[in-house]
Design a protein around this nucleic acid. Sequence first.
DNA 1: TTGTAAATGAAAATGACTTTCATTTACAAA
DNA 2: TTTGTAAATGAAAGTCATTTTCATTTACAA
Lengths: 147, 147
Amino acid sequence: MNKSYITLHFKTSGLKMTAQRSVIIDVLLRHSREHINLEQILAEARANNPAVSGATVFRNIVFLEKTRLISKMKLQDNKSYYQLQKAGTAEGHHDHLLCEKCGKIVEFYSEKLEKLQEKVASENGFEISRHRMELYGVCRTCRTKNK
Amino acid sequence: MNKSYITLHFKTSGLKMTAQRSVIIDVLLRHSREHINLEQILAEARANNPAVSGATVFRNIVFLEKTRLISKMKLQDNKSYYQLQKAGTAEGHHDHLLCEKCGKIVEFYSEKLEKLQEKVASENGFEISRHRMELYGVCRTCRTKNK
DNA sequence: TTGTAAATGAAAATGACTTTCATTTACAAA
DNA sequence: TTTGTAAATGAAAGTCATTTTCATTTACAA
């Protein structure tokens, strides 16, 4: 996932490339390995170009989410966090591990867990289409620090 | 979990029993097997006693949640849902299956899933303290209906 | 160049809570 | 019974994270 790919994505959707859009894409690319919220995206975009409004960030993020170029995750601080999808994993599902001390978010995927979820669901008469799983705890770094 | 238990819970916390409180408790008891949100609780409480305000419902629910008599769950519709804890399972953890057609919420608990989550977390250096897992799909009843 | 659909910023609106404040009220003590 | 008073309450205002409106701008195809 690089800038020209995303730019093309906008163009082929019949949308125009603007200075604001460009800056927002840059921010997302700089944080492609993390999850950031609207506030953070706006602050960083403005550092590069003060002519970016919250409404514009919001609208562009909504578009990218609807077209599946970014994924959204709502955490318990009641804010939504976004992250660019990885190149080949447009539909690459994963879950999250969250450190309660430092806020670090680690992605993981476990085939076994997925299968087991399906099994449990089916035992309860459900056919599942998606799920949300967040594991909260303390990461290794923070556990070491607190000694 | 019955009315006198909850009433005692308020009294032993140094709180008073009021008409509003009584009606709210009744609503929670009537729905002890379901999850309901503030709006639903208010509507039903008012049906019994129009002199109940949203603020009062909110404050009482917050108290019951803090003292662990009810559990809270935030769903993707951005609303919080509550349910009375079962008698012996004050700390009885469970997860949820949600039907996307009819909105039914089914609780489940799988020791295997819990263990597997811990294993995956530890493989990633995490020691987890809690988690959230929601499985979305279609229940048996709705699947049958759509044929 | 231009016409015009898109895009944008500022500000208002939304929605689900959450808090404030001026009054009531439950209930222990007299 | 009366009180005194800490609790409780309703109405309304405040929060907060979006989300939408509306009057202007702007990208870019023709």
